[in-house]
Design a binder for these strands. Structure first.
Lengths: 245, 245
DNA sequence: TGGTAGAATAATGTGCACATTCTGATTTTA
DNA sequence: TAAAATCAGAATGTGCACATTATTCTACCA
């Protein structure tokens, strides 16, 4: 009976599984880089040709991306890059607000020394990125900040959930604004939030987080994506399933 | 350009798609009925035989169930009914607490006449189920209550997310306790919460929801599943992919 | 000339057969 | 006797070919 309950240990990815993930990652990367505009149809044969893998592989990756909300599938019609409405983006940020204000409040109540250290380290990393004007890195760090807060709660489910919400909320932004615009998400806000948490000021931390998220959604709502159709071959230029940069 | 953005209308499910969903539902129903114990391996050929569909259909349904967290897949080994740890259940309820306390607080601030009506209707439905001792119905209503609260917020993303959390939190319970035990989730709590919301008492509503969820997780933690292995043929007795009861 | 019907083309969906990997039992060996 | 190795059976994974469905282009007619 007991051995029924035991968890199966994760084994070192054998080739095939790794390739599946590579295809999945390649498509996701193209989206994050803003190379695939909303409404674009992802044709399986074309993707298979471009990524140099079998169509079944592409198929599986697309299914997974659909399940995770990155893409939308219409039976017998194809798979498409979703066109998120401003309204949907607002909704996602609304849910994030609910979760993340709760998160910072909890952290105020129960954070320990290691958590404090990681928070400080993250803030200083962001400051470093600002100084060197490394926008790509700053964009990454900005997202990771929110993930970090979730992880510090020590709740695996929470982390996973928030990770999903984050990808969905950045997607609309990534789809419309290419890399060069990734310098918005004020690291100032992050630093202030951390300061409030370290001071164990729950009300202030929650308020700052609320304002921070409201600011982000406002900023995104103002943005209008440029209408530039693009060919799949161009979108995946430099992106391969075999080896990732 | 504009037609790139338009949403594709959902069409009336053509046969094949409906069959996919039927297989998916059949497996899910077997789980909800507690016929599949944690750790059970779901063999594709056996399922295909029992449900009288092709193996590919079973395959797709299993993949979907894995993506949604109902099942766990191990490459080259098979898909299994997950054995949720008490700890994981606690984590899920923790996330639910974050979301649902925020939900009731928001409802207190902005509910209207239709929302109030639906809440009252639901409570009276639960009372009815208690009077007639209809445990199956009461179990269903208990879950729907939480969904209802989310839906009244008018946030589609929120509803979807909470739906997922609910299925995952009831799963452990459904897997271990068969139908006869489905009379626990105090409808009293629900009635009190509704009363607090209608009184627009945000603090009290949040507190009641917190206690309610804490009570549920405590109740579940105390439960020890009975060790009864079961054959797939038995588990799916009376459950068909062709027609659902 | 504009619009519709129809055919050609291309993409998605599905079942099948085969390759690979795992499981369990039997045999071999220390 | 116990542990390791081997081998048969079964289950999962994958590519291919074909069926079905959508899309586009063309020709025809009002």
């Amino acid at each position: 009976m007991a051995q029924l309950r035991k968890k199966v240990k994760a084994r070192p990815l054998k080739g095939d599984v790794a390739m599946d993930k590579a295809v999945y990652d390649a498509i996701r990367r193209a989206m994050l880089m803003g190379r695939l505009l909303p409404g674009t149809k992802l044709r399986e044969p074309a993707l298979a040709r471009v990524l140099k893998v079998s169509r079944e592989r592409v198929r599986k990756a697309l299914h997974r991306l659909v399940h995770e909300g990155w893409l939308e599938a219409v039976p017998n019609r194809g798979t498409f890059v979703p066109a998120l409405t401003i309204e949907e983006v607002r909704e996602i940020y609304d849910v994030r607000t609910m979760l993340e204000t709760a998160i910072v409040q909890r952290l105020c109540a129960e954070y320990g020394a290691p958590a404090a250290a990681r928070l400080k380290a993250h803030v200083s990393e962001e400051r470093q990125a600002v100084r060197t004007d490394d926008r790509g890195r700053l964009f990454g760090l900005s997202g990771e900040f929110h993930i970090l807060l979730a992880e510090l709660c020590g709740n695996e489910q929470l982390s996973r959930l928030l990770r999903g919400l984050l990808t969905r909320s950045t997607m609309h932004f990534s789809l419309s604004a290419p890399e060069r615009f990734h310098n918005c998400a004020g690291p100032h806000d992050h630093a202030d939030i951390v300061k409030a948490i370290l001071a164990r000021d729950a009300r202030k931390a929650a308020k700052l987080m609320l304002d921070h998220l409201l600011g982000l959604v406002e900023w995104q709502s103002a943005w209008r994506p440029p209408p530039d159709p693009v060919a799949l071959e161009d979108a995946f230029r430099g992106i391969s399933a075999k080896r990732q940069a």
